[in-house]
Design a protein around this nucleic acid. Structure first.
Lengths: 77, 77
DNA sequence: TCCATACTTGACATATTTGGCAAGTCAAAT
DNA sequence: ATTTGACTTGCCAAATATGTCAAGTATGGA
């Protein structure tokens, strides 16, 4: 799988979960540890950035899901 | 959880899986896509670096496990 | 002891993430 | 038509991941 496809899948998954919890990007950001703003969330959700594990971790905490949930991806082999 | 603790957990998990498959760091590296060498694996396994999703993905492929397996961590709350 | 293998560590250049702000788009409501 | 809310995009600086090589450590075997 290509890098860009992976990032799109991860981003889509994050967005899905966020929306399923009816959170806006802002809501996510205010729940996250440390400094971050919606710019970064937007970039991650659209797959334009390759987030680090720690960033994923903070997102998963704010969404109240496990990190595994965030990258539980159908690997299109 | 602290960033450094997270990174140590992830690194430990990767090392565990690699060793369970009786692979040396070199074996992992040669199976991975793109350029990488054992230096980076060492840094990731020891938690001194905060790997990106794509790097985790390439490691998971080379180890023939899912990415979820790599970050399936007991979250110490 | 000497050597080979495995891994760690330091230093370095390059690429990219992160964090921040400002401006732009877009849809819905007033 | 204007405003409001949600999100995107461009740009910037700072921090850091990546990739590479060289040197160092540790272990076990010949």
């Amino acid at each position: 799988m290509e890098k860009s496809d992976l990032l799109k899948l991860v981003g889509k998954r994050i967005k899905e979960i966020r929306e399923s919890k009816e959170m806006a990007q802002v809501d996510l950001v205010v729940k996250m540890e440390g400094n971050i703003d919606t710019t970064n969330i937007s970039r991650i959700e659209s797959g334009r950035t390759n987030p680090t594990v720690y960033t994923l971790f903070r997102i998963s905490q704010a969404l109240e899901v496990s990190m595994s949930d965030l990258i539980n991806i159908e690997l299109p082999k």
